[in-house]
Design a protein around this nucleic acid. Structure first.
Length: 432
RNA sequence: GGAAGAGUGGCUGAGCUGGUUGAAGGCGCACGAUUCGAAAUCGUGUUUGGGGUAAAACUCAACGUGGGUUCGAACCCCACCUCUUCCGCCA
């Protein structure tokens, strides 16, 4: 949620920012609703003040008949105004929630994901002296993916992952968690990325709930696309589409202490996505499933330093890809693609030889205080003042990197080599 | 899921036969006095959000959440949520 005061002061900036994001909102209407709401509020407060002073003058005694009559009158006036205010406030709140976060000036302006800007390319597309296969051809041949039976049980876009592919997934997740928990490695990443003032504080592992209440989900700013989210029948609960959805609201309604900042979490959860409107897209393999597992970073930091925190997360992602020796490129996402709650966003795309193109494996979101405001997650500074925290989140690993490993590490005879850093996590095996 | 009890400020804990209680007392915390410095002691202060202001003053709201009764609700009534204990079920 954006600060209404900011919108009042900068209506034109908000109009431009929203337009650049391709999000259609009516700022003038919002300000009008704000005005109506405000006028009613002032009237109500005035009446309440009168009522309070009437009560005070009673001094603990039963007031005179005359004052009781006055009170009755006030009560009725208040009831009418209260009703009007509630209606006005609901309209206002709804309109305010629709206003997206403002993109930073550095975010490229674009109309679709095609306008994302390639910031850098690291590594070269993997070369083979044979025709590389897709990950699903390889995996199905090895009985690592059973899509037919999963479809029988749960429908399209579900899979059974089996055998060594499952072991590889756990190895990958464990490796990611180990890196994020290692202060020395984090410090080295900070140093080589040239980041200033970033703490090497390790990420705390978390297994969060995979569901959240409507109210909570809305506060994350991620329920705008309800058609993408599964709702549990008969419950006020939604299945999360990322650990971020249950990690970012973790400190809802709390005032954190500056001394404990930044708070860094790494959460593992199964993510559920309806993937509405993607029929026929990525139907093979494990690139686009209704259900997949994901390790996710989340951090809560002071406003000054939150952009560095975001860059730190990107640096971690790049480190992981480099350690896995996977060719990738980094995209600065354009205004149309960063998403409503974001002020900035970065994607990492990995090279998939089987598809002969780069495909997204990682996202890093720079959210500023947009989520913290409705969630009321604040921090008490050393000087005693209270302000909203900034939240950042970013992918560590999903299941897509498994596809990347299979395709980039495939051998001519249909086997898959294990990336060196994962060998210790695979019981010393270097080939599957 | 059933029964009983409970939800008050950073913590603890009064108030719950309705009115001067945004809320006693204690702990903690901050500042000051004392001290060479500290402990102890004493004094002062210490919720959050909205409106308002240059900043104040001032003002409104919040005692789990939402309704209701009343001139007036932390206190009475209703619903829901959460927690505790017991029963049932279960990894």
């Amino acid at each position: 949620m954006l600060d209404i005061q900011y919108i009042r002061d900068n209506p034109d900036k908000v109009k431009t920012g929203s337009k650049n994001k391709g999000i259609n909102i009516n700022v003038d209407k919002l300000l009008e609703l704000d005005n109506i709401r405000h006028k009613l509020l002032v009237q109500i407060e005035d009446l309440r003040k009168t009522r309070n002073s009437l009560n005070d003058s009673a001094k603990g005694q039963r007031p005179s008949e005359k004052d009781i009559e006055k009170g009755k009158k006030l009560k009725h006036q208040l009831a009418v105004l209260d009703k009007q205010f509630t209606e006005a406030d609901e309209k206002f709140a709804k309109a305010l929630r629709e206003v997206p976060n403002m993109p930073l000036d550095s975010v490229p302006i674009g109309k679709s994901e095609d306008d994302n800007v390639v910031a850098r390319i690291v590594g070269e597309p993997t070369k083979f002296d044979f025709e590389p296969k897709s990950h699903w051809e390889l995996a199905e041949a090895r009985d690592w993916i059973d899509k037919e039976r999963a479809t029988k049980i749960a429908g399209a876009r579900f899979v059974y992952l089996k055998g060594d592919l499952v072991r590889l997934e756990f190895a990958l997740m464990q490796y990611g968690m180990d890196v994020l928990g290692d202060e020395k490695i984090l410090q080295a990443i900070i140093d080589s990325a040239g980041l200033k003032g970033v703490s090497p504080k390790p990420f705390t592992p978390v297994l969060p709930p995979a569901v959240a209440k409507t109210e909570v989900f809305k506060a994350t700013g991620r329920l705008n696309k309800e058609e993408q989210t599964y709702k549990l029948e008969g419950e006020d609960l939604w299945l999360n589409a990322s650990a971020e959805h249950t990690l970012s609201p973790m400190y809802m309604d709390e005032i954190l202490d500056e001394k404990e900042m930044p708070i860094r979490l790494v959460g593992f959860t199964t993510a559920f996505r309806r993937e509405a409107g993607t029929y026929g897209k990525d139907t093979e393999g494990i690139l686009r499933l209704h259900q997949f597992n994901k390790l996710e970073m989340e951090s809560f930091s002071l406003p000054n330093g939150s952009l560095e925190e975001h860059l730190f997360m990107v640096a971690i992602q790049e480190y992981l890809m480099q350690q896995l020796e996977l060719p990738y490129r980094v995209l600065e996402k354009c205004t149309a693609d960063i998403g409503s709650p974001n002020a900035k966003g970065v994607d990492i795309e990995v090279w998939l030889p089987g598809q002969d193109k780069y495909r997204e494996t990682h996202t890093a979101d720079y959210i500023t205080d947009y989520q913290a405001r409705p969630m009321k997650t604040r921090v008490r500074r050393i000087d005693g003042s209270v302000e909203l925290v900034h939240t950042n989140d970013a992918t560590v690993f999903s299941e897509r990197p498994l596809a990347a490993i299979i395709e980039n590490y495939q051998t001519k005879d249909g086997k898959v080599k294990v990336p060196e850093v994962l060998v210790p996590y695979m019981g010393g095996r270097s080939e599957l």
